[in-house]
Design a protein around this nucleic acid. Structure first.
Lengths: 205, 205
DNA sequence: CGAATTTCTTAGCATTTGGTCCAAAAATCC
DNA sequence: GGATTTTTGGACCAAATGCTAAGAAATTCG
């Protein structure tokens, strides 16, 4: 049943689907769902109106796809930042620095799709996705903390769940500062301080 | 020069200006700037179209006024929560609980105008206002920390500025959790834990 | 080449948008 | 009562919105 493959029968497309998706991400990112008109997408993605609808569905569907792709990609990088360094402290700091990197990427708009844009989309599916994504982030950090306990880097009574949530909260805080224009240098210092904070011993005082 | 006062010459208004403003706050809060149509405001504020424009200016101007009023009011309550309790720990916890209260107010939409709505308004003036407001919040908490040092509740090398910023970040985190639907009870517990975290001694560990 | 298939391009549609205009209504001042 | 002033209510407008329809263009298959 091996058909000759890739190119089907009709007129070939003049755009790359995943490239167009990346462009769409930038557009939503910079103009925030409601602020994006279909014409903005057409102009920015290099896709004709009709093609846009037939390939990506309507605006809402496109946004969901953008969001899912974005989350998957960034999530993978975050996990890497979190689990690659052997030292727990480097891992947490790296994770937070990663948040800063995303939020201050050159050539892109400040902030983050999932923190600064998506929460405002009044849509059940989007909201649920964000909930799940946040929970996933917390779970990831939590697991890293547990590894740290196994390695003897933090005490066994370290409040892993609570602290993991706080790491996510602080990351969001960094992102929002970035959106308001805080310089990258400051943010990176803040990330370091945040890592220090969440690693303090629960008995410290 | 004492004119008879209050009521001027023409036809009396059929609405209360500050009441209408409150209504507008709720509308923007629940539908997020771009999602609000002028007709929504007319219907929700109980003000005719013409009156709306002549009294409050255009949509952007109205939003700015709503934002300023909101910030002033909530800021006053926050300051009270922060400086009324004699114990530093109660003050910080109270401040964070206040954030939860605002974000989970009964009859109102989840979240907070300044955290969940305003950041997405692509407007220089709004952005600047948010920057200033955030800086103001940090300064407030910072001052409270200093009082705590004077009172001997925390060591004199306590990193007041850093920790104050982190308090604000954590408050924002609580607000965003609230927006995503976290139950109030959970949030209040989180607030308590956040207070505990930021009060840990910098040497703890 | 001609039929079939897919994509592209242009035009168009109904609705909604933010905002203005103007005459009628309701009050005060003389 | 009549002039003045302010607010009201509704009609109105140009522009933008999300989306659909229909035919032309470009490719593969026989």
């Amino acid at each position: 049943m091996l058909r000759n493959s890739s190119r089907g029968r009709g007129r070939p497309r003049t755009f790359d689907e995943s490239e167009a998706l990346d462009k769409a991400t930038q557009i939503f990112w910079s103009k925030s769902y409601d602020g994006v008109a279909i014409d903005d997408l057409i102009a920015g993605m290099g896709v004709g109106r009709q093609s846009l609808y037939s390939v990506f569905g309507d605006k809402r569907t496109l946004f969901l796809r953008v969001l899912r792709t974005y989350a998957e990609r960034k999530g993978a990088v975050a996990a890497k930042a979190l689990f690659a360094p052997p030292a727990l402290r480097d891992a947490i700091a790296g994770f937070l620095r990663h948040a800063v990197d995303v939020a201050t990427e050159e050539g892109s708009v400040r902030g983050c799709l999932m923190v600064c844009v998506a929460p405002l989309v009044d849509d059940t599916e989007v909201r649920q996705f964000l909930k799940d994504a946040a929970a996933g982030g917390v779970a990831l950090v939590e697991r890293r903390f547990r590894d740290g306990i196994s390695a003897g880097e933090i005490p066994s009574d370290f409040p892993v769940t609570t602290r993991a949530r706080q790491v996510i909260d602080l990351a969001r805080g960094l992102t929002m500062h970035a959106q308001l224009g805080a310089p990258r240098k400051t943010l990176l210092a803040d990330a370091e301080e945040a890592a220090e904070l969440v690693l303090l011993s629960p008995r410290g005082g």
